[in-house]
């Protein structure tokens, strides 16, 4: 009975996995096909056409885009970690006037959709001369209400006595923050880091608005550029580019899935 149940579960799980992952498998397979094969609607390539990848890197500066995406995502990730952890520290470990009110203000920014500020932000970034600059793609995203909230939830579980012990031992706030609070909160920092990396890597609308040339353009917009450049038949090349775009984040996700799941659920519910 158990065996039957288990086997049928495995069958169902495998079938669902195939269905869900099918688009990616199909794209992966197509990325090795010749234009001819694609047109004929083959499902598997007869020979592996690695040229598609070469072609993708030649058609657009895909390598440049890749570097841009990595750089932008890392900068935003560390920016968010620094800025949010500092704010969360103040909310948990420091006593100041208007703490509650300010926290409500922070939380309220979560309710403001990013589109609501998009138009003036575009103007601001333009006036700052940040169009086609890394600064325009990174700095506006450093402050994160979600990140502050997530870290605050975790910091609150650190016993107050730890801070008091530090105070008595003459350990200043900054040292306590750097040497105790941050190391102790490693897991939630990793969660927030993965989350931020993924969302930044996948961002679309803002980079579309603020990168008009190829210098700082990230992969997503690069992919759009490639897709609109390619003639209808070159699906293999486009799929090769898709792989370049998707694989890094898939790897990050596969490594950090457990972290992310726990961290996001905690952040959502506590």
């Amino acid at each position: 009975m158990r065996i039957v149940k288990q086997t049928s579960l495995y069958v169902v799980l495998t079938a669902l996995s195939l269905v869900l992952f099918f688009p990616m498998l199909y794209a992966f397979s197509a990325s090795f096909m010749s234009a001819q094969e694609v047109l004929l609607g083959h499902f598997l390539p007869s020979t592996l056409h690695f040229e598609n990848y070469l072609q993708a890197f030649q058609d657009v500066p895909l390598f440049r885009f890749l570097i841009n995406s990595i750089f932008i995502s890392l900068v935003v990730t560390f920016g968010v970690l620094a800025v949010s952890s500092m704010a969360a520290y103040a909310f948990v470990f420091l006593d100041f006037k208007g703490r509650k009110l300010l926290f409500v203000l922070f939380i309220s920014t979560m309710m403001i959709p990013w589109e609501a500020s998009m138009i003036p932000n575009f103007v601001t970034v333009q006036q700052l001369g940040w169009i086609n600059r890394y600064a325009g793609l990174t700095i506006p995203f450093f402050a994160s209400a979600f990140g502050t909230f997530l870290l605050r939830q975790y910091f609150k579980t650190i016993p107050k006595e730890m801070q008091e012990a530090a105070q008595i031992a003459g350990i200043g706030h900054f040292r306590f923050f750097m040497n105790v609070v941050l190391p102790v909160s490693k897991t939630s920092l990793v969660t927030l880091g993965i989350y931020t990396f993924l969302t930044t890597w996948n961002a679309y609308l803002w980079p579309l608005l603020t990168t008009t040339d190829e210098l700082v353009r990230p992969l997503q917009i690069g992919l759009r550029q490639l897709q609109s450049q390619e003639t209808v038949n070159e699906w293999g090349v486009v799929m090769a580019a898709v792989m370049v775009v998707a694989v890094p984040t898939l790897i990050v996700l596969f490594i950090g899935q457990k972290h992310l799941q726990k961290g996001l659920t905690d952040g959502a519910l506590k």
Binding site: P159, E161, M162, E164, A165, I168, A169, V180, P183, V184, K186
Partner: peptide, 12 residues
């Protein structure tokens, strides 16, 4: 110096 009820040791 102070010793706390929950010891307040740094776990890391």
């Amino acid at each position: 110096s102070m010793v706390f009820q929950n010891y307040a040791l740094y776990p890391h």
